[in-house]
Nucleic acid binder design. Structure first.
Lengths: 252, 252
DNA sequence: CGTTGCCTTGATCATTATCAATCATAGTGG
DNA sequence: CCACTATGATTGATAATGATCAAGGCAACG
């Protein structure tokens, strides 16, 4: 299964692809030194490999430097729910307390590069740099709020609406990591099975719904890339807040 | 709608009902002083009142001192998804960055008492006590991981399984706040509509499923209290990890 | 008593799941 | 170059699950 060696030479944190993200912009040289010191090593995985197994204990903390991955939970008969997708810049493993078993697994969608931190790195970060500790807290809280959106989709949106909102969300997230902002589409490494597992739909129904939207000209999925052909219509369908409409909600 | 006055005399933080929770146990007198200093005021709401409106900006941070509440999102046609239930000791409002609009609303289920903090209290906490900042981060991450469970339920569990897992989860959380550990049941202030909105089911189907489980003797819901009559069977039905069974998952 | 809110139930309908094929593509070994 | 295999996409037929509609019931309350 194409297991590759960890690189002998690591990327220094001042060259880290995350440096331009909110968490990292304001940091002084010494804060970068701190990050560097806490960093344990890098880890490279091929597509489809598993970083964290459900139930595993004492997993380290990770940061995703490049590639795509996802967090998931399964039931004992194999039903799987994808909790969210991970893109470059995301944290991994903050949900479980030290000593606890991982409540979810993490698997890659593409070849991926991770930065590995010891479990107590988060505490060191707080202790030695309250600013970075604080920023991290917000980042974690914000990342987790993506799950809130998913829950709204899966709980209350129709199949069409779910597909639409997933496409929009992933497009936005992926486009934000590109220089062209998605003008030429974005990479889209999910299979329809992944989409089904993220949206709480069956594979077959996912396929049919996807085809329907594509035939209507809302999007195009081709050669592993996603193009939004009618972002307006997709947004309307997904009922996404604050995009087309300026929050017209009655607010009681 | 029974809006009540905020109490003139506030509970000092050293008397706070949260003091025995993980976040608060290890704290020195001066750390309690810090909490006290950051605390702005207390707020009392009646059952069914709204603490935060979706889309509201610059809401303060809250802590729930007593009572029950829930976080939710709605679609523009009124479909509502309850994200999670809030019990004494929970944080509220950490999901949105300063200046952002609230991505979810918060409404009470019972008469409730909140502790109100300024929005920058979280930063002050980090700056002046890295330990408490760190603990807060974990607490937030852990609270948010409850949503992961919900997502698994709504996405992949059948109606019966969803009901079972909700009953178990809420029972455990509520029982942990009682001295008797739930021996005489726990308060259960949700209507079936709330359960439906949390589980992604219709009201009618929620009712039927609930009745079915109750007739089978798995639980009893009476006078606003929940009793688990066959916790083993409920756990099996819900496929909850690490309870009856010692993690028998294959882990591939 | 007449509301009002919440729970309950039966009948019917819709959406989504399941089952079963087929097809396309890429990789593998002979 | 040709089976042989494997993965993923696609489609039609049928079944199941859960939603919607409609109607009461029951208790609390002014």
């Amino acid at each position: 299964m194409g297991m590759k060696q960890a690189m002998a030479i690591q990327i220094p944190c001042r060259e880290c692809p995350l440096r331009q993200l909110p968490l990292f912009i304001t940091h002084s040289a010494e804060e970068l030194e701190l990050l560097q010191a806490l960093k344990q090593r890098e880890l490279r995985l091929a597509a489809g490999e598993t970083l964290i197994l459900e139930g595993q204990t004492d997993t380290p903390l990770f940061t995703l430097l490049s590639g795509w991955a996802f967090r998931f939970k399964t039931l004992s008969d194999g039903r799987r729910q994808i909790l969210n997708f991970l893109l470059a810049g995301d944290f991994i493993g903050v949900q479980q307390k030290m000593g606890d078993a991982a409540a979810h697994g993490v698997t890659t969608l593409t070849d991926s590069l991770f930065c590995v931190f010891q479990r107590d790195a988060l505490w060191e970060l707080h202790r030695r740099s309250p600013v970075m500790g604080f920023n991290t807290t917000w980042l974690i809280a914000h990342e987790e709020s993506l799950v809130d959106d998913s829950l709204l989709s899966v709980g209350r949106r129709s199949a069409e609406e779910r597909i639409a909102s997933l496409l929009i969300l992933l497009f936005k997230r992926a486009a934000a990591l590109q220089l062209d902002g998605g003008a030429a589409g974005v990479p889209f490494p999910l299979t329809q099975q992944h989409m089904a597992d993220a949206l709480g739909l069956s594979l077959v129904h996912t396929n049919k719904t996807l085809r329907k939207l594509e035939k209507r000209g809302l999007h195009e999925l081709k050669d592993g890339r996603l193009y939004l052909r009618d972002a307006r219509a997709l947004t309307r369908l997904a009922d996404v807040w604050g995009d087309g409409k300026p929050t017209p909600r009655p607010l009681v």
